[in-house]
Amino acid sequence: MTLPRAQFWHLLTAVVTIAAIALQLVLVIRGGQVLDEVEPPELGLRLARFIAYFTVQSNVLVAISAVTLARDPLRDGQGWRVLRLAGIVGITVTGLVHFVLLRPLLDLGGADWTADKLLHMVVPVLALIGWGVFGPRPRITRREVGLALLWPLAWLGVTLTVGGLSGWFPYPFLDHREDGAGAVAVTSLGVLVLFFALFSVASYLDRRLTPSPTTAAAD
């Protein structure tokens, strides 16, 4: 695929992702519904919890990488590679976990529903299509995989620690008071296995798929 097409897709992804994050942030500030919270806490705590969501973090990573790729579809660099890989795998996990574990728990309407679908469904689809079709690749080595893995591991550790101290968890399946610590351990292990699998798949496809994009003016 050519650079202009790649730029267009990455720009589209950036605009949609930033709009989705901004919409959710406005709803949080206004006291909108996030998951099953009925009585929102004070604003400072709402904002802290907003940032704590894996969904938000993965969307932010996608937004940053999409913005940089809209400017330069051939972008490269050690730190950027890690950010891009973490964002792609993270947003994939966001979509899968939402569809399997969270979607049945939600009863949203209006703008809350719109923000939820954008963050959990539309952005993952845009990001994955963009990575699969426009790359850039090859960009993944074992070093990038190892460094990118630090983010979900750190997020899980901090989330469980803070949740244990405060009593608030961003997702019900991480709350030991729901089904017990054993269930949380099993779920956490399952999510980590999913991460390892997705990082492996991404690394394999990065090597096997045709390098993209090209600098030609036409296909």
Rank of each mutant, 00 (worst) to 15 (best):
Q7W: 03
Q57M: 13
L156D: 13
L61I: 14
D206Y: 02
T187K: 15
P40D: 12
A19P: 05
A216E: 15
G163S: 10
P136Q: 03
V125W: 14
F134L: 06
R207V: 13
L101M: 03
H10I: 00
G110V: 05
P211F: 07
R71K: 11
D219R: 06
V82Y: 04
T210C: 04
P170N: 08
P73Q: 12
L119G: 02
H120F: 02
T17R: 08
F195L: 04
I64A: 05
L198E: 11
A216F: 12
V191W: 10
V28R: 01
I21Y: 01
I29Y: 02
G146R: 13
A52E: 14
L209E: 08
R142H: 04
A6C: 10
E42L: 11
A6L: 12
H10M: 07
L156C: 11
A154S: 13
A63P: 06
G79L: 13
L156H: 09
D175R: 04
R143K: 10
A154L: 14
A52R: 05
A148E: 04
D116A: 03
V38F: 00
S65G: 09
G132P: 07
L106R: 05
P104G: 09
W113D: 07
I64G: 08
K117G: 11
F199T: 11
L198G: 08
G163K: 05
L128I: 10
R84Y: 07
V82W: 02
T114C: 02
L194Q: 05
V162H: 01
A115M: 05
R46H: 03
I129H: 13
T68F: 11
A183I: 08
D72N: 15
R75C: 14
T210M: 00
Q24L: 06
V28M: 12
L205M: 13
L105W: 00
S200F: 12
D219Y: 04
L3I: 13
H176Q: 04
F54N: 03
A216V: 15
P152F: 12
T13E: 09
G146Y: 06
L27W: 04
P170T: 09
V133K: 01
V62I: 15
G44I: 14
P136R: 09
P136I: 08
I51S: 07
V125T: 15
I64Q: 03
W113C: 05
S58L: 07
A48S: 06
V158I: 13
A20V: 05
Y53K: 06
L101R: 09
V122Q: 11
L209K: 02
